[in-house]
Amino acid sequence: MFDFLSFLPRAVMQGIPLMYGSTGETLTEKSGNLNLGIPGIMYVGAISGVIGAFFYEASLASPADFRAFPAVLISLLCALLGSLLMGLLYCFLTVTLRANQNVTGLAMTTFGVGFGNFFGGSLIKLSGNSMPYLALSATSSAFRAYIPAADNWGWFGKLFCSYGFLAYAAIIIALVSSYVLNRTRAGLHLRAVGESPNTADAAGISVTKHKYVATCVGSMVAGLGGLYYVMDYSSGIWSNNAFGDRGWLAIALVIFTIWRPNVGVLSSILFGGLYILHMYIPTGMNLAVKELYKMIPYVVTIIVLVITSMRRKRENQPPASLGLPYFREER
């Protein structure tokens, strides 16, 4: 019998980093910036949070001095700052200098992963751990804290109340993003910038400002996904390259959700489930079958791409000026 009660919470936890990543990338893409640096930015978000937490824990005289609130706050701020800097760098290159977005994004992913591995390795060395990982169990347990009573609520508690606060924040951020995009003037202006920067410019909307703000906020949201992964999902264990291909999956998810963060809430949990499905389906010792299961999220994304392209519904297409630099027409 398939064990839903243990599968679903794992799927949710697997899906939360994807939700952060795809919400952040959707906000970015709505401004016309195709930020392929998201995997790197999530990676930097994770390592920045780890650096903050590591030095907070290291500064304590004894483990008994540990306080949950400053630990969470410090690593949260570090993660936001790290990913913000990445977002600013991306904007400076692509908006101000009008560098090619794809090349810039790919370079930033390579850079972000290298940055994370370098500092990850250094911290492991500093910690004196003989194994190639770093454990921040105190901070992690603060991130993973949930209502203690939930344990007594049976399946309901396990399914809905057993997650750390960042999981709920992800859902709230996704829903708020959807609301802002579709219901507010700021969202309208942002969509106009991504669709037709010329029109937006002529209507007196600052294209540069909107691109910068959307991309930087998007990067910070994505960075939180990295932080959630290391602090909550991995229980505070950092080891180099453990984050894997989740960043790319987040970008695939943007296409899957046809640029809608609210759709992303359930889709990312679905993707999370597909991602770990191979662990719950008895495949015996045949590793090849496991690898095939891991492909499912990508296959689904390709199918969605084919279907939305075939249906040619205008609302389901990417923002019209996605990936293009904006030049004001001059004679």
């Binding site: 309208l188 202006h189 969509r191 106009a192 669709e195 937006a200 205008r314 609302e315 019209a320």
Partner: peptide, 13 residues
């Protein structure tokens, strides 16, 4: 902007 409605275009900016 093509994907917006007439009203949204009119109040743009």
């Amino acid at each position: 902007v093509d994907v917006l409605t007439a009203a949204e275009n009119i109040i743009l900016g």
